[in-house]
Design a protein around this nucleic acid. Sequence first.
DNA 1: TAGCTAGTTGCGAATGGTTCTCATTTGCAT
DNA 2: ATGCAAATGAGAACCATTCGCAACTAGCTA
Lengths: 142, 142
Amino acid sequence: MRQTKNRVQELEGILREGGVRVTRQRAAILKILAEAEDHPDASELHRRAKEIDATVSLSTVYRTLSALEQQGVVQRHAFENATARFETADAPHHDHLIDIETGAVIEFRSDKIEQLQAEIAAELGYELVRHRLELYCRKRKD
Amino acid sequence: MRQTKNRVQELEGILREGGVRVTRQRAAILKILAEAEDHPDASELHRRAKEIDATVSLSTVYRTLSALEQQGVVQRHAFENATARFETADAPHHDHLIDIETGAVIEFRSDKIEQLQAEIAAELGYELVRHRLELYCRKRKD
DNA sequence: TAGCTAGTTGCGAATGGTTCTCATTTGCAT
DNA sequence: ATGCAAATGAGAACCATTCGCAACTAGCTA
């Protein structure tokens, strides 16, 4: 995957600029994150990263994810009754629909909702810093 | 407070009907919950409940909250980076705005957003079961 | 009203995801 | 190449929440 490769190099650049060293372990984790089409949790990322570099420890996965989150290249989501799940922050902002039967996550975006949120905050005398919108759903069977 | 008293008796009735015994400890917790104007967490509820009945243990607070949640009379909220907070489920459905500086919680309701959420789920082939909408805000200073 | 019994309690131990500690290793600027 | 601050692996620590168990009790029954 040429795309993934480029993306990983791009991410590595962001880290170096932020004064964050690109170690063998972090490179492996970055690659896994860039390739991921889903929203894996730390232990799943650990499992995948070990296939690239067997020395990656779970501690490092957590530490790297925190560093990446701080650099703004990764987003952490704490969905209901579940461990934290992660995704790269390259796509434009979106919210999540979670299939309560399978745990699958679908991304969606609603400009109308975004705007309404800002309006509500403003009406209450607040400035919206960030939000969390999650739809817990069941697949329609018909 | 006559209102609180009635509400507590009402809640006790719901429990008894659900086959859940109303113990001294649960009565204390129910009273605290009915009186609460905020969104306390388990340890805060424990602190308050002990003033009514010093024998209430933290385990019982947790167990009671779970029972109450199952009976549908209490709602649990897991806001970002914080312990679970609780409120009685007597008010009509609403979402929450959290002041990221003070932790204060303000309730709000937007029928438009509610409707948009259902539409989005439907478009994606899902049936909306429940949702979580939280606005993390900073007080506007001007 | 006493008795019975399954539900409940307090206590302390267990859980489990995540973070921290520390001795050792290593990226990378010079 | 070298030096040193940053990063690592392993395992301990954290901490909110849940569990296990022996003692207690709500509330039905006679």
